[in-house]
Structure formats: structure tokens, C-alpha cells
Simulated assay, not measured.
Amino acid sequence: MKVFPLLLLSVLITSGCATTQSPTGRGQTLLFSSQEMSQLGDASFSQIKQQEKVSQDKAVNAYVNCVANRITAALPDQGLPWEVVIFESEQVNAFALPGGHIGVYTGLLNVAVNQDQLATVIGHEVAHVLANHSNEQVSRAKLTGAGMQLADIALGAGGIADKDLYMAALGLGVQVGYILPYGRNQESEADIIGVELMAKAGFDPAQSVELWKNMSKAGGEQGPELLSTHPSHGQRIAQLQAKAQPLYLMSKSSVKNTCQRAK
């Protein structure tokens, strides 16, 4: 019964490198197709939903979905609908995965205190997917030898220990306790794309500065996990939001659905 997965695995093993450019013009080497990355994202998100407690709070779900849906509606390629799941956890974090998946932890809502600040985070995470950063991560793992295991897991032939490696390569270090982190270039790129994306969706990019301040205050000196992997400082974020402000002014009048924060 493993013949079909093994055939797919052979495709992953023998597929050539695709050299392309990110949305900001940075060179990328991608070893996996968009379909293969969607399979990886689908499998990982399914596993997370089994491991984490999914929030049943209707007000919180409506609020987060409202923000996320406006962000994804502003994407250049609409594609399939995005799945948004809120997890009951004190973690100040969120993530997005290939295949159209967004996860938000309720702890983030204590730091991202309004719709614009929440849109800053979701926009940043969706930008990682839009810029193929997950593909870069898994491709890097393959080039260093770990990718063979990752391909094995994605096709259903690996063990639980390998699944942790696979999830780590997708940037999900909070779930598995370790991470193959996005590089500084990737994080900076997600800042640029994410702030522009939120502005196009009608969210105020100026609030990205306030979010950064809130993040800096949260969790003492080290701050939350989301901040620890983020290279941009306040001045950098301020510069990005200033550039995105004209996009916000053009788009806000056409946005009718204000997302009401859950009380």
C-alpha cells in the first residue's frame, strides 16, 4: 500500500533545483513544487490540530477570521480559501503554512490589542508563504541531508521523530521544541511584504510600530517567541510603515467590514 507514496517520494528525490526570485527580487533555490509544499503544509497543520486545543469561542473565531480573511483577500493570487484556526494557548505567536493554513494562538491577542496589530502579525506570516520561504527551508534541509527524511514524512512513510524535524523545517519550532529558523533576509522580506499586504487590506500600518513596542514589553527581557526570531527593530518597522501608508490611504475607503475585537 506504500507504492504510491514511494513513487511520489522518488519525484521529490529526483526533482531538479528551480532558481527563481522572491517578490522583492532576492534569488531563491527551490527544490519542491507548490503542490508538494501544499502536501507538507496540509500534513503539518493536521498534526498541529490534533496536538493543540482548538478554541471554540465564537467571538474570538469571528474576530480573527475577519482579520485573516481581509489579509488573504488582498493576495495577488486568491487561489483556494485559507483555513484559519485559533488555538487556546498563552503562546504569543501565529504562523501560516503552504496549502492555505493560518494558526493563531490566543496569547497573541493579549499583545496585538487591536485589528491593525493582529493584521501586522498575520500579514507577516502569510508573507512567508507568499515568498516561498517554507520551500527555501525544506530545500535547505534537503541539501544538507535532512530533506530526505522530510520527504519521507510528507508521504506518510516516516516515524514521529522525523515528523518533528519536518515541522521544524517549516518554522514550527514552538510546537516541537526546536526550529530551523527563517534567516534574517527572509524575516526582513516578510516585514516588507507583510506591511504592504496589511495596508492593501485596509489596516493601518502605523500600528505595526505599536505592536513592536508591545512585543518588546511582553515576557520580560527576552520577549515572546515571535519577537525572538524577528530581526527588525523599531526604526526599521517605522520606515516600512511610512512607505506603506499611501497604500493604506488608498484602500481604507473601500474596506467596509471592520473587524470587531472580541470583548
Score class of each variant (00 low, 15 high):
T72R: 06
Y248C: 01
V92T: 05
T144A: 12
L165F: 09
V138K: 02
T24I: 06
K200S: 04
G171Q: 03
I86V: 15
T258Y: 02
A168K: 00
S22Q: 02
L197D: 13
L247H: 06
L31A: 07
N61A: 08
A74G: 06
N114Q: 09
L12G: 15
N65S: 10
F87C: 10
I71W: 04
G156E: 00
V84T: 09
A59N: 13
L249V: 04
G223S: 07
N132S: 13
T14H: 08
A68W: 05
A127V: 09
F32L: 08
N214C: 07
L108N: 03
T144H: 07
A206Y: 09
S228C: 04
K58V: 15
V54F: 09
L155F: 12
N93T: 01
P76E: 09
K243M: 02
L247A: 12
L40E: 14
Q207A: 11
G159T: 10
A73T: 01
I71R: 00
A94D: 05
K263E: 14
V138F: 02
L7S: 10
E90T: 15
A119K: 02
I153P: 01
G41D: 06
Y105G: 12
L211C: 05
H124S: 05
I102F: 06
E83N: 15
I160F: 03
A146F: 08
P5W: 01
Q186R: 00
A127L: 06
V126G: 07
G234V: 14
I86D: 00
E52R: 08
G156I: 00
E88N: 15
D191V: 07
V176R: 04
V195C: 11
H133N: 12
H233A: 09
A59E: 13
H124Q: 02
R70M: 10
Y182W: 15
G147Y: 00
A94L: 11
E187M: 05
S22V: 07
N257P: 13
Q91C: 04
A59M: 02
M1W: 02
D164A: 12
G107I: 09
Q39Y: 13
L40Q: 13
R184P: 11
K217Y: 00
H230I: 00
V113I: 07
N114R: 04
Y248E: 02
E225P: 09
G100L: 08
N61P: 15
T144Q: 11
S44N: 10
Q51C: 05
T144G: 15
V92N: 03
L9D: 06
G219P: 05
G156F: 00
R140C: 00
I122L: 14
M1C: 13
E196P: 04
I102K: 03
Q78S: 13
Y248N: 04
L8Y: 14
D162N: 04
S15K: 10
I160G: 04
G202H: 08
A18C: 13
F87T: 00
I153Y: 14
P23L: 02
G99L: 03
K58P: 07
A242K: 13
V209E: 06
T14C: 08
A218L: 01
A154I: 05
H133L: 05
R140H: 03
D191S: 13
S188D: 06
G173S: 11
A131I: 10
L180C: 01
Q47I: 07
S44K: 01
A127T: 03
S228H: 11
M1Q: 06
S46Y: 03
Q35G: 11
A151K: 03
V209S: 03
E88T: 07
